[in-house]
């Protein structure tokens, strides 16, 4: 089968952006802002439904950055200085690890009341390596210790989401492949071992999604990665790696570029994917945006999601 979904955070609508700016300047009440968030969330869910995506998420419009619900919601962690989000003109607040990490029940606040009952729901969370790399650790003083602790917390969060009805959990891990943060290949095994804590006892489908860097080193050890699917950014990954690649299960191809406003050509993408499919064997292929789409306006994101939908249609039966 060929499935489709979007990766993580979708853009806020221009109307919502205007409201958040008013709110930020003290010219809009909390209630009015909440109403605007609800309206915008309905729109981004509607875009995914219209495009008939396999999995639908709430768009994560309230997430100020991928780590924020965790830096604000976990005990022992607080949001720290504003730092650049990889190689983008967007910023995140680095989590400061102050003491032993503990979790309150389900902190990631997905808007499940708005998600369509006839669709499978997907949630996106920050993966342990990226969380540990982007945190300022004043407590454990050891990345593996921090990762293990956070992996345990994440496991609880995933199970809480599972209970709410989520069928697909995507863990975003850009730091695992990004040029300045990717681990040496010799260290990958140790990191991946920690990831077994994340998926222990989880029944929902899981995906480790990478972007902003070349996933080739990771794909070399894909058999050992304890997730159903592995996601790669096709705009950063050397496609030679797909030659005779043996997957553990599913493959997620980030074919829509979330960081360029040019609308992709469906036929071009179809050719690229067909070439990859000649090289690999998988019964589970997903085509997605390479990264969070909030680098674009909602209108551009919508056009690109429609490309994704058309592309999936052309690829069915391949």
């Amino acid at each position: 089968m060929i499935g489709t979904y979007v990766t993580g955070v979708l853009p806020r609508t221009q109307e919502l952006i205007a409201k958040t700016r008013l709110y930020d300047r003290g010219r809009l009440s909390e209630e009015e802002l909440e109403t605007s968030f609800l309206e915008a969330t309905k729109r981004v869910i509607g875009i995914q439904e219209t495009a008939n995506l396999t999995f639908v998420g709430d768009g994560m419009l309230k997430w100020q950055d991928l780590l924020r619900p965790f830096s604000e919601g976990l005990e022992g962690v607080e949001p720290g200085p504003l730092l650049r989000w990889f190689n983008n003109n967007t910023f995140y607040k680095a989590p400061i690890i102050k003491s032993d990490i503990k979790i309150q029940p389900s902190i990631s606040n997905q808007q499940i009341d708005l998600l369509p009952s006839g669709k499978k729901w997907k949630a996106t969370l920050p993966a342990p390596y990226t969380f540990s790399i982007l945190s300022i650790d004043q407590h454990y003083q050891n990345k593996i210790k921090l990762m293990k602790k956070y992996a345990g917390v994440l496991n609880q969060e995933i199970k809480a989401l599972e209970k709410k009805g989520f069928k697909y959990i995507q863990l975003n891990d850009p730091a695992l492949v990004y040029i300045t943060t990717a681990p040496e290949e010799s260290k990958l095994k140790e990191i991946i071992e920690v990831y077994e804590i994340v998926t222990e006892g989880v029944k929902a489908k899981t995906c480790l999604h990478t972007f902003f860097g070349d996933a080739s080193p990771l794909l070399k050890i894909v058999q050992t990665i304890p997730f159903n699917d592995i996601g790669v950014d096709l705009y950063e990954t050397d496609t030679k790696i797909f030659n005779n690649l043996k997957l553990r299960d599913g493959l997620v191809l980030g074919v829509i570029d979330s960081r360029n406003s040019i609308i992709e050509d469906v036929q071009d993408l179809e050719k690229i994917i067909k070439e990859i499919l000649l090289k690999i064997e998988t019964n589970n292929l997903y085509i997605t945006s390479n990264a969070d789409m909030d680098f674009l306006t909602i209108d551009k994101a919508e056009e690109k999601i429609q490309v994704l939908s058309k592309l999936a249609g052309r690829l069915q039966g391949v």
């Binding site: 205007a18 910023f91 909030d294 674009l296 306006t297 551009k300």
Partner: peptide, 15 residues
């Protein structure tokens, strides 16, 4: 111009 793009939190720039 294509509209407002998020920089961080409730801060944006026109891209």
């Amino acid at each position: 111009f294509s509209g407002w793009i998020k920089s961080f939190d409730y801060r944006y720039f026109r891209k």
